[in-house]
Design a protein around this nucleic acid. Structure first.
Lengths: 151, 151
DNA sequence: CAGTATCCGTGGCGATACTG
DNA sequence: CAGTATCGCCACGGATACTG
């Protein structure tokens, strides 16, 4: 029924309005407020990736590990999280250019609630196909990727 | 989002999922799958209301306690949850007509993950304004409303 | 590599009107 | 009371092209 998600729904939920900025219309229930933060199909996967990485990750690395996210959506969500203070952006004056994203302590606080959701989904809607970083071995793969970025 | 019977326990769940129109494009991460279930601005508030009520609730009662949700969105989400086996719909042949919605055991499984979200939101994005049913006293108010429906 | 700019379809969501 | 029908806006999100 619903085309995308978003928790929004949670995804679908409220929106990160135009670009960036924190929606101020939050006289909603706590759940709805959560949805405002993690609005959009890819919001949760993106921040969760950075949480698991627990270190600087480059743009392309993120895009690869989150495939098939588009560049536009990835950068949009990153700027959103940056505005919320959940992610920091570090630019290195090199060639080729290098930009690294790093989850903040505040961003890390999302780990528990997100994993509660993931656990529920795995329990009641298990899937044989591609899983993004829910299993320990895939988490290791991601950490390895992040360490690759660091090196 | 954006857009479900009897005590559908885990045993009956697998079978039910076949018959029902769950978005089949779920080769996503668990988090994204959660978003597919609770897609839409009002999805989570609606199901959470029914979980807290823990008993039959009438359409109008739901709409009042979820204000300012529109009739269209409320009925849309209710039909969605009904199709997922998370809510049952009971129609009474009376005048004026009476329809009661009741959360199933399967629907109840959402309580924990949802409360994880709510707890996070309250901790980091507290709000002085209207809160929907997150506090104990408001839960009592809701339960009272549901009991009113039962009487 | 790390983005931004642009076009465009789909559909979520609100508002309003109508029905059994 | 409990909905459905219809209209319209615009945000989400994919695809593509371009840039420092």
């Amino acid at each position: 029924m619903d085309k995308n998600n978003t928790l929004a729904s949670l995804s679908g939920l409220a929106q990160m309005k135009k670009n960036v900025s924190v929606p101020a219309r939050s006289n909603l229930c706590p759940v709805a407020r959560f949805g405002e933060i993690l609005a959009g199909k890819w919001a949760t996967p993106v921040i969760y990736r950075l949480i698991l990485a627990d270190g600087p990750v480059r743009f392309n690395t993120l895009q690869r590990t989150l495939r098939p996210i588009s560049q536009k959506e990835l950068s949009r969500h990153l700027r959103h999280f940056e505005a919320l203070g959940m992610v920091t952006r570090q630019v290195y004056a090199e060639v080729p250019p290098r930009v690294e994203y790093l989850v903040t302590d505040f961003g890390r606080t999302l780990r528990e609630p997100i994993e509660a959701l993931a656990h529920w989904a795995e329990q009641y809607f298990p899937v044989s196909g591609q899983v993004h970083a829910a299993t320990p071995d895939q988490q290791h793969a991601l950490v390895a990727a992040a360490q690759g970025d660091r090196a």
